[in-house]
Every structure is written in structure tokens, then in C-alpha cells.
Design a protein around this nucleic acid. Structure first.
Lengths: 150, 150
DNA sequence: CATTAAGTTCATTATATTCTGAACATAATG
DNA sequence: CATTATGTTCAGAATATAATGAACTTAATG
């Protein structure tokens, strides 16, 4: 197993740990360690020795996650894939979204619990405040980054 | 199905979406919507109508994730569980950890790719810079929160 | 407009995860 | 020190998820 192959598997396992298909991680691994921008469907299929179905499904998964993007070349039928250029915006957007989702869950929990004097209620209220804080602060990091790189 | 039961299932589904056992989410749902701090192993088992094995395994999963914590009462053999008081610290710590893990993956990918002139290399380098930025900034949010709440 | 290339879909198979329940460990109680 | 309460462990069953490969769709090419 070459170093690159080992790396590809490692990204696969990383992805799996987060409950996502290993193959999606492997595709990411290919693109992250590739010498070039131009990696086609077939090339990924050959490198990973996987079926067309699996490559197709997982490419689309990664496209939906905004982890990769598709680009094309004129007079060439193929599509090519690369790590998403716009991923910087999406990284924090995704984090904010998951914070929001959990904030909503916390709020619903509190609404159901009507015993406002219990330790549990107060504790969860504190956590909710913190999530609200994070929800406004995380997008500001993006702004800070932009300023710094101007 | 009562509103509370619906809520518990909803948190289960939320957890499942992130690749974690639904039962762990259900336990969280119980604790988030509970009127009290004192929820024992058996009470969770009864509410969720699940096996001892599943409750045991998923309580320990949540303890390891620092999502819940165990507390005891003198002259009582049982253990009781609640949403972790210390979770505020752990939320950002966990986020930073996952940022670090991915930063390391990005670095390894760049190291394997020796064609430093390709668009791909430059693109991934930019993303790496951003991850380094996030890795220092995220812990600072915790500091900001502490200051604000003094 | 027939042919080919590029990718999708989906039924089946393979794999991995989770749940169950009974047997087991541990420690507090009387 | 036998009994009971509290939880753990683990083999097997149930369930869920992912990969395969062949048939299909779509659209570009000659």
C-alpha cells in the first residue's frame, strides 16, 4: 500500500467515524492528495476500484455537503471534481446550522418541562443561553477572517 | 403519543442523523424534557421500554461524550443522570477537536501532493489556513463568554 | 439518427451497527 | 454471609446502511 493509498483509507475511516459512508471519505482523500484539479468520475472509480453506483452516490453526497464541486472543460464530455473553492464559507455555515438545530431541541425540551424551579430547568436554560451566544458568534468569525485577509 | 414522547423520538432521530445510536438520543431527550434532575437507570429503561443492555451502553456513550453526568444521593444505591453541568466547556472543546482532526488530514494531503503549482494545492492551502485560524479562534469564544457573564 | 460516452437508478448482496435478554459481576443491606 | 439491588457483558437476532453490477437515461458526436 502506497502512502497515498494509506492516506485515502485514513480519510475514509475519518468519515466513517462521523457516521458517513467510507467511500465518500475515500473520494475526499483522493481529491485532497491529488496532484491535479482534474479528477473525473472514471478516474476516481479506477483509483478506488469501486462500482459506478457507489462513486455516483457518494460524489452527489459530497456535492450536497458542499465539500466538493464539479467543473467542466469545453469540448470534453466528462465532469471533473475538486475540493470546493467555496468551502470556506460553508464550513462555518454548516457549524452554525448544527448549533441552531440543537438550540431548537433545547428550547423544545424546556417548553415541555413545566417545573421551572428544578435544577434541571436552570441548567438547561444556561446551556440554551450559550447556544444562542454561539449562534451569533460563529458567523462573526467568518467576518473576522475576511477582514484579516483583506 | 404524548408531546413528551414525540419529543423524545425527535431527539432520537436527530442523534441518528449524526450517525449515533437513536437510543442515546432518546435518553438525551428524556433528560432534556424531564421535570427533575433525578433520573435513574431504571426510570430511563421504563420510559423508553428498552433493554438493560441498550440503556447501559448508551448511558456510557453519553457519559464519554460528556453530554450527561452521573450523580448520586446518600443512602441510595442508584445512580442518577442529568444533562452535564460542565457541558458548556465541552461543547467548544469538542468542536475544536474535530477542527484539529481535519486540519491534520488537510496537512497530510498537502504533504503527499508534491505538485505545488497546481490550483488544487493552492486551494487546499487556503482551506488549511482557515482551519488554523478556526483552531485558535474557537477556544477564544469560550473566553469571550466567560468575560461577558462575569 | 444511430452510436457512444457519461452517469443514474435500483434490486440484490454484503457489511456494520444496534438491540435484546440472559448470565454474570459487584457491592450494599439486613 | 445470604440476599437483593444495580448495573455490565456478550452472543445472537434484528435492523440499518453501503456497495455492487446490470439495466436504464440522457445528451453529445459523427
Amino acid at each position: 500500500m502506497t502512502e497515498k493509498e494509506k492516506y485515502i483509507e485514513e480519510v475514509g475511516v475519518f468519515y466513517e467515524k462521523y457516521g458517513l459512508p467510507k467511500m465518500a471519505g475515500r473520494i475526499l482523500g483522493c481529491l485532497l492528495s491529488s496532484e491535479t484539479d482534474n479528477n473525473s468520475f472514471d478516474k476516481l472509480k479506477d483509483i478506488l476500484k469501486a462500482s459506478k453506483g457507489s462513486i455516483s452516490g457518494n460524489i452527489n453526497l459530497l456535492l450536497n455537503q458542499n465539500m466538493i464541486e464539479k467543473h467542466t472543460i469545453s469540448a470534453d464530455r466528462k465532469s471533473y471534481y475538486r475540493i470546493a473553492m467555496n468551502s470556506l464559507e460553508n464550513i462555518l455555515e454548516a457549524k452554525t446550522k448544527s448549533v441552531t438545530e440543537f438550540r431548537i431541541i433545547l428550547e423544545k425540551g424546556l417548553k415541555i418541562n413545566s417545573n421551572h424551579n428544578d435544577l434541571n430547568f436552570n441548567n438547561i436554560s444556561d446551556i440554551l443561553d450559550y447556544y444562542n451566544f454561539l449562534e451569533t458568534e460563529i458567523p462573526l468569525l467568518r467576518v473576522k477572517w475576511e477582514k484579516r485577509n483583506k
